[in-house]
Amino acid sequence: MSILFTGRATGAKANRIGLVRRFLMFFVHHIRQALSSLGELWRTPAASFLTIIVLGLSLTLPVTLHLLVKNAQQISNSFAKAAEINLFIREDASAAQIQSLQTILKADPQITAVRHINKADAMAEFQAASSFGEALNYLTENPLPDVLVVMPANTEPAAARALMQQLAAERIVEFAKLDLEWLTRLEAVVRLMQQAVIAIALLLLSAVLFIVSNTIRLSIISKQAEIEVMKLVGATDSFIQRPFLYTGFWFGVLGGLLAFLVSETLLWGLRGAISDITSLYQSDFQLQAMNLYEFCGVILLAVSLGVGGSYLSVRRHIRAIEPSGP
């Protein structure tokens, strides 16, 4: 609608085009513009590809780290479940006493399973596994204690520790041991890695924002004359900035895909090393690739960086261009 000339209908409204058609035309127009700015990328292939590569590779590092952390977490989770409490039984406890404690523990709802390793079996196992072999035969007495291996129902480290303290108070228990130290350590390492991923991601992503915005800035400068003409014939800033925002969008889509491909390839390449480590702890470890949500997340992140970086530039520089006279 005209500001100066009341009653002068302008644009699509002047044609009395129906709302539905106008709505459709709006979409068709946007898609056409999006495609044409994809074509624009080919006009300056060097700058476009550099930007896409920088965007893609900068995203690759945090994405790969995220995948590694995810896999590490999987290990630490499966170990938390395996956490078991060893109860070392006093030497003077009778077999009947051990038997009754075992029965009591089995009935406890906090405990899922109890296994008795009797000292003779333990000795045999030790003899087989260690190199002492024959030497152990010279011992007059078996120095190993009976052990009850208890599986706590709640595998949280804190809950398991509380249960351990409770069981240590049993009369025939010499002492109880919960091997949690390394688990807490692994968890701490995972947490540290998670925080490192976030910090690195923030740094890289802000760098990406500036790189995209700089590429767009150069593109705006190279089109200065064109933008002046558009302003002279009545284009609004938002009309002029739209193709640049679409360029940013495509930087994001292509950069995101690149990050996806490279990080999956890296993970694939590292799978040997990863499974070497994990097989030390766990046999049925499965390498976790990116799932659909994560993939969408990466693309979304990349697109918002592309569009965001472009927007930063467009806001400042398109506004600053003012046509000088006829």
Binding site: S2, I3, L4, F5, R8, T10, A225, E226, E228, V229, K231, L232, V233, G234, A235, T236, D237, P326
Partner: peptide, 24 residues
């Protein structure tokens, strides 16, 4: 008029420029 209204003013005013001002 506000800055944001300038484009709409220019749509009401057809201008032929001394140096053409075409998109080359």
């Amino acid at each position: 008029l506000k800055r944001s209204q300038v484009p709409y003013v220019r749509r009401d005013v057809g201008i032929i420029f001394q140096n053409h001002r075409l998109l080359m």
